[in-house]
Amino acid sequence: MAWVWFHRFGSPPHFYRLAGRLTPWFAWPAALLCLAGLIGGLGMAPADYQQGDGFRIVYVHAPAAWLSLMVYVVMAGTAAVGLVWRMNVAYAVAASCAAIGASFTVVALVTGMLWGRPMWGTYWEWDPRLTSELLLLFLYLGYMGLRNSIDDVGRADRASALLAIVGVVNVPIIHYSVIWWNSLHQAPSVMKFGRPTMPASMFVPLLLMLAGFTAYFVALLLTRARGEVLRRERNAHWIAEALGQGPGCKV
């Protein structure tokens, strides 16, 4: 049963249609979740006893940092699926991840710098967390650069998949860097076992923002991957069907 689902998802026309139908189901909840998270985070959460109102940067910094890591794992995971099962749709999804992930890595780094300046007294420090996050940006840029430098799509897919998979080693390093090393960066307050270290009025808006950004990413990825799948397709029959021009298609 699972395999039927897997193969159906791997079929480009099916993916194209399904992704198109699913996109609004992620886009609208994303907008609502982020709106609720912003109202809660900027308007209702109390100021932090140490960081005052400055802590509110967390409501954009943490979701961006979460996306930077999650997108990378999705990219490496789908690239691995593409490599193992030679699945074109999986490669298309992986290729669609890179620019999204890179842009949110930049957001995580810059909002982190803007947070660090008043709290640590410096924009940048070669600290394990900051350095490993910067390395993540270079991995994304390397992935995109490698794809751009190879004309043949199949070869670009395979080579960039290997790079993505090797680079996944950096993800746990980023996550655990604040625990393994003595870092300037504060310890995790969400992604950990046990109770959160924040009161609910601060924590709930953060969860809403994290959920909202995740849904937003799914909607973005589906949109981009549809374009990527269509660009790779050479079969006239299903292109016509996808564009609503095929025989027996509703226009």
């Binding site: 005052g52 109102d53 400055g54 954009v60 803007l114």
Partner: peptide, 12 residues
């Protein structure tokens, strides 16, 4: 924003 406006709003 309690004096943090110059860091907070550019982040947003």
């Amino acid at each position: 924003m309690g004096g943090y406006a110059v860091y907070l709003w550019p982040s947003y």
